[in-house]
Design a protein around this nucleic acid. Structure first.
Length: 464
RNA sequence: GGCCCCGUCGUCUAGCGGUUAGGACACCAGGUUUUCAUCCUGGGAAUCAGGGGUUCGAUCCCCCUCGGGGUCACCA
């Protein structure tokens, strides 16, 4: 049984785009193999905890159609799915490790640790815990425990080397001496990530640990833990980190990290997922646009590239445009309506959509084309005062039109242009700006039809 | 800096010992068009990071160098 998982920590306001990427892969791999996709909330960092963040993450996942089979709300046979409710478990295994000699109590203060670290840094050595508490006698330990001196439990890294096999990167071996005696259980009784993931991934029978590359360095510690606990190793697959155009890791400092940002900019969820799927992976037929269902069919973990791709918003934008153009009218109308709240009435969107659909690449851009339907222009992109005569003539010609249809409106205007001896391009540009305020707009005749005779004429009168 | 990962057009990528190194985005030129966009046609763009091997033959296998990234917390 394939069981994958993502372990988000509820420390941000929303899902990070990189998290969505690994979520997609974990979800797809589980679906492809008729397995289960689990979301386990890792809320062990009490200092950075953000209220409601866990719910928000689940909500976002749901919005993208990446619903977990088991999570803290839905529940499941391996719950609880939030680490703060599993504290006894971590403690139990931490204690077991201590009794086996694979972990030990440490009573060092933060100050002392900082001192040790600083010394190491000035000596240009690896900042590592100096094992000050490793050789405490049983009496000393129980005495300190008795006195309730704050303490942590540290992993006792043995000598030798540790290796593991990564599905995407092959076998990786490292010398244990480069490893630090990692804290497993913090003084507040919460586990660190390392203890938490290992215990939970095992207890929840996770078969494939698929996560970002940034975790690779800590895998050996986890492998040691599995080994000490005599647990079977899951399959590891470290997917590349998404990078910014500046080549760095997509950081929280730079704007485009949160999934909500993309949604606010008018990107479609399907397009975001499709684009993400193409990061470090490609469709066997080199297709660029495909559905989630198709993705599940053809996707395989082994085909993921190890090198870190740059997340390019320009290509995402192109893809978004493709999705918008292919989208069924009713669905698009709904998306746009929701996107703008109540700003645009549904029937207006419906009528203008045929003119605008193929012109926009994001939902947000709809406003640039449709805004003039809502209100008359307040300013004009070109100087229109010199076209007074043109507007007067057009206005009176249009006044005579009884059948207010685009085609008819066009004919009448063509004739005015001809009578005036003015080039079509110039004539229509003047009219376009007069009606919409802009040099770029949806097709004029149709726009005027939608605007209505009265409103159109009133806009002309305004500038005569 | 130590350790680890990675390295094909600007970007995303195909390639899996013998290819005119292919596609997509972006860009440029042209066509359609009452603007813009769509659509169509064409173009430039990777000495496959560099240098050594292995081989009849390397983008592909091995080594070194260089470059980029990640990681070195009682954060995940």
């Amino acid at each position: 049984m394939v069981r994958t998982r993502i372990p988000p920590s509820p420390t941000g306001n929303d899902l990070h785009i990189g998290n969505l990427y690994t979520a997609l892969i974990n979800w797809a791999y589980a679906k492809k193999n008729n397995g289960k996709f689990i979301v386990r909330i890792e809320d062990t960092d009490r200092a950075r905890l953000v209220e409601g963040a866990a719910q928000q993450i689940l909500k976002t996942l749901h919005a993208f159609g990446l619903d977990p089979d088991e999570d803290m709300i839905k529940g499941g046979p391996y719950g609880p799915y939030i680490q703060s409710e599993r504290l006894e478990l971590y403690k139990k295994y931490a204690l077991q490790l201590v009794s086996q000699g694979d972990a030990y109590y440490c009573f060092c203060t933060q100050e002392r640790l900082e001192e040790v670290r600083q010394i190491a840094i000035t000596e240009k050595k690896q900042p590592k815990y100096d094992r000050h508490c490793l050789h405490l006698s049983a009496e000393e330990i129980s005495e300190k425990l008795e006195k309730k001196i704050p303490h942590v439990i540290r992993l006792h890294i043995p000598e030798g080397k540790t290796s593991y096999t990564d599905l995407i990167r092959g076998t990786i071996t490292i010398e244990n001496e480069t490893l630090d005696d990692q804290v497993l259980l913090k003084s507040d009784g919460f586990p660190t990530y390392h203890l938490g993931v290992v215990v939970d991934d095992h207890l929840m029978e996770i078969s494939h640990v698929i996560r970002a590359e940034e975790w690779m360095a800590s895998v050996p510690k986890h492998v040691l833990l599995y080994d000490f606990l005599k647990w079977e190793l899951p399959v590891f697959a470290h997917v590349p980190l998404l990078r910014t155009p500046e080549k760095g890791k997509i950081s929280k400092r730079k704007g485009a990290v949160w999934v909500s940002w993309y949604l606010e900019e008018g990107y479609l969820k399907e397009a975001i997922l499709n684009y993400l799927a193409l990061m470090a992976w490609s469709h066997p037929d080199q297709k660029e646009i495909f559905s989630l269902d198709e993705y599940i069919q053809v996707f395989d973990l082994k085909d993921i590239n190890p090198s870190a791709p740059i997340f390019d918003v320009v290509k995402l934008t192109w893809m978004n445009g493709e999705y918008i153009r292919k989208m069924e009218k009713g669905k698009l109308k709904e998306e746009i309506y929701k996107f703008f709240g109540d700003k645009y009435p549904e029937d207006l969107i419906e009528r203008t959509l045929p003119l605008i659909q193929e012109r926009i690449k994001t939902l947000k851009e709809y406003d640039e084309y449709a805004h003039f339907f809502l209100e008359a222009p307040k300013e004009y992109e070109i100087e229109i005062s010199k076209y007074k005569e043109l507007f007067e003539k057009t206005s009176s010609a249009l006044t005579e039109v009884s059948d207010w249809k685009a085609e008819k409106i066009g004919e009448v205007m063509q004739k005015v242009a001809l009578d005036l001896g003015i080039k079509n391009s110039e004539y229509f540009m003047a009219m376009r700006v007069a009606i919409t305020g802009k040099k770029i707009s949806p097709p004029l005749n149709e726009s005027m039809e939608i605007l209505g005779k009265e409103e159109t004429l009133s806009r002309l009168r305004m500038i005569i």
